[in-house]
Design a protein around this nucleic acid. Sequence first.
DNA 1: AATAGAGGCAACCGCGAGTTC
DNA 2: CGAACTCGCGGTTGCCTCTAT
Length: 553
Amino acid sequence: MSHTKNQREDGMLSKDQTESPLIDDGNCGGGAAGGVVLKKGPWTSAEDAILIDYVKKHGEGNWNAVQKHSGLFRCGKSCRLRWANHLRPNLKKGAFTQEEEQLIIELHAKMGNKWARMAAYLPGRTDNEIKNYWNTRIKRRQRAGLPLYPPEVSLQALQESHSTSAVNGGGKAPHDILQNNSYEIPDVIFDSLKANQNVLPYVPELPVMSASSMLMKGLGSSQYCSFMRPTIHCQKHLQESPAFFPGYTGAVKDECPLFEQFQDDMSDKAARSFRWSFSIEPDPAMETSQSFGVFPGSHALSKGNFSASEPALEAVKLELPSLQYPETELGNWGTLSCPPTLLESVDVFIQSPPPTSRVESDSLSPRNSGLLDALLHEAKTLSSAKNHASDKSSNSSTPVDIAESSNFNICETEWENRGEPLSPMGHSATSLFSECISASGSSLDERPPAETFTESHVKSEAADHVLTPEIQKEAPIRLDGRCPDTLLASNWLEQGSGYDKDQTIMTDAIATLLGDDLSSDMAAGTSISSQAWGLDSCAWNNIPAVCQMSELP
DNA sequence: AATAGAGGCAACCGCGAGTTC
DNA sequence: CGAACTCGCGGTTGCCTCTAT
């Protein structure tokens, strides 16, 4: 077939299809295959037939030989892609089913952008298809301000990964992880995944990575880190506190169909509210990343899927290790009460990177909310300090004790505190969850004590404080007036008083979900936002981000 | 109904990693 | 050990389709 024929047949060819003929060098990047000009652009049915015939005769592989032996004017790479993505047998066509979507989400949470691996779990689906789906999903979620991952997925991933790390790598020092750059996510098999496919075709052998390191990765993630700062900690704690969300597995949706949507909705609200709250000095150039809590200096940002939003910040040039906080974080967070001594805890390690990992920072990037960074860090620090304090105190500490020692405690069984608003900017979900962690964390019971983080002991103290998804929604929040940023959102917070009304408010908020009326959101979504902060936000930070970090050198 | 814009998808490119020779 | 080859991935491009105006 000739270019002319192809053009006629397709009726469309990329502009460079004829103007920039490919010369096969084995990589479709130039060069010549015997001086043959190779075609680019859409494949024609004739070409497909040729390729199919060739593969039938010679089998897959050795794609560069296709052009030589079949008469196709396509480079081997193009042939491989065409075959793999469109011609090979048993390919599924059409939109992803709900089950597939769920699986992809879970797989991505587990593997990150390992499309080929993910495709292995999705018979008939291609890596490119999955990638496109995911990228599309990212865009959609981003637009809608929704968390990339349903909370259950995030939590499940964290929980299981943590369990794995506890068993396999509990003794591995965070520094080792850092230095080895073993940023792969531990092998996590989601329950739902297992349910969907009793026999996984492929279980990657991934380097063991502690949940902490994962979280660190998450911190550096961009595409998934909506509200990451405040939630990273939450996730960690949540992960360490399976009891926090009993039955909170990948199959949670089955049990609570509305939960995910609710989460999404809430997160949307939260995202909007949060975006609004932090749009003090909006920077159009950073709108996207900012809105999603992207770390301007995040290394992952350049490695993530937000290429278009890659920040041109010095931090990026610093090539910070994935587990390091961007300068914007460290420099400012360092001012918070986070004694270096806390590094003894992995958790602390996450919350407070070692000095060596800190980078000089002039200040918070104007594009960065700054407050978000500071808040998260503060929350982490506080949480960490509390955890340590609790750890030192007694293992018999009751949840109440913990609660009393905390500024926040959404895990209180007493729900009269519902009325207390939570500020994403105040101690926010981070602290909120930090406290929760302190009051939960039964997961620790499943871990060998010796492999349990210090704080884990503390968390296990209140294993009986189970926070169901439903409770999550209603997680009461306390406003920590100590935090300056709390004041920043005071107005917003003030609207959240009276949780009883929140039910109605929430309903209204849901009804107006995705609405652009921020004012309305502020008025009706206070509690929702708060709650979303503590939940959906988690979804954004997530592991996948972590996975992204695995791409780092 | 026409048009512009947004979104989705297929395909490509460049690069890096892994494998083979 | 190094080159060649293959594969996978992130990012991008361009076209088609859909939707809002």
